[in-house]
């Protein structure tokens, strides 16, 4: 267990390193010269070739790629992600302002995913082929195949425009979070509801479920006491994977609902060819991806007694 744990952590660090190097290379290779952009910002149309060359030299942009990556990494590890070419503010400052918004979106959405997926999956298994099971199955299929921008548009039209219950834009109070949370949660909740339903069904056809019935448990009790603990492992792993993917959803959702988060910043960074900003946000995404997946993999390992307490030989 300890060794497996250390191996996972090591692998995660390696993955972060490789992913940031790759994004660094891609962002650097993208068309548009950083020095030219800076010169343009500083001197407007008056920027000439000499000025651009001088800026490039000062920033060390002529050094080989590995050298530049190492320099960038060293800065990043101290929390220095450079200065946004678009806003002119240090990225660390941008992050401090925007991460709470994105975190609120992801954590509220994550709680909704947890509640919805378990409720839908368990209700389906209780109904076991009944009307509720079929309706929930249909809902999950729709939820897992509707793009989030479409969901957002529909929700806004119905709840903001027609009914006027919640604002269309920005956040002010809990009610304004409902649509963004619902939008971002719908896809992962649908996927996870199926994971719950299918794994519960699998568990219910295992011999240990028959033992549960033989112990005198009702079907509902067998579901909750015997089958449910057995879905913990696939559920946690899938939850981790789906939760990390929600950061992609956040890019669209923040934009549509006018939330000033990291995702919205990323879109602006792309539009303005803010390479420094892009690299910083991508790094943040990579760290989020890898560490959240790691966290849920470790939780899944902890939930499994066979891994938590391996049999001594």
């Amino acid at each position: 267990m300890q060794r497996m744990f250390m191996r996972r952590v090591g692998l995660a660090l390696l993955l972060m390193l490789a992913a940031t190097a790759l994004t660094f290379w891609l962002v650097t290779a993208a068309p548009g010269n950083v020095a030219a952009l800076i010169a343009e910002r500083a001197a407007g149309a008056g920027a000439d070739g000499a000025m651009i060359a001088r800026i490039a030299d000062e920033l060390g942009l002529n050094d080989p790629l590995p050298v530049r990556y190492a320099r960038w990494l060293g800065d990043a590890l101290t929390g220095d992600f450079g200065i946004s070419l678009r806003t002119g503010k240090p990225m660390a400052e941008e992050f401090a302002e925007r991460i709470p918004m994105t975190l609120a979106l992801l954590s509220g959405g994550g709680v909704l995913v947890l509640v919805l997926s378990l409720a839908m999956g368990i209700a389906g298994a209780v109904s076991n082929g009944g009307v509720a099971d079929r309706v929930l199955h249909g809902l999950a299929l729709v939820g897992a195949s509707t793009p989030n921008f479409f969901v957002a548009a529909m929700l806004v039209i119905v709840f903001s425009v027609w009914l006027g219950w919640v604002p269309t834009f920005g956040v002010s109070g809990l009610s304004s979070w409902l649509l963004p949370w619902t939008t971002i949660a719908l896809f992962p909740a649908s996927v996870l509801a199926r994971v719950v339903r299918v794994n519960l069904q699998d568990s219910m056809s295992r011999p240990f479920a028959t033992t549960g019935f033989a112990k005198g448990l009702t079907r509902r009790a067998v579901l909750m006491r015997e089958a449910l603990p057995n879905i913990a492992i696939p559920y946690m792993t899938t939850f981790g994977a789906q939760f990390t993917l929600m950061i992609i959803g956040a890019i669209v959702v923040e934009r549509v609902f006018g939330l000033n988060g990291v995702g919205a910043f990323f879109i602006e960074a792309i539009r303005f060819r803010d390479f420094i900003g892009m690299q910083a946000v991508l790094t943040l995404f990579v760290v989020f991806f890898v560490s959240v997946n790691l966290l849920f993999d470790l939780l899944a390992m902890l939930a499994d007694p066979r891994l938590r307490r391996p049999r001594k030989a």
Binding site: R206, P207, F208, T210, T211, P229, N230, D304, P305
Partner: peptide
């Protein structure tokens, strides 16, 4: 009731 295969008849969790 005692079942055939105790490895699968007892809940691993």
């Amino acid at each position: 009731v005692i079942f055939q295969d105790p490895m699968s008849a007892l809940n691993p969790m």
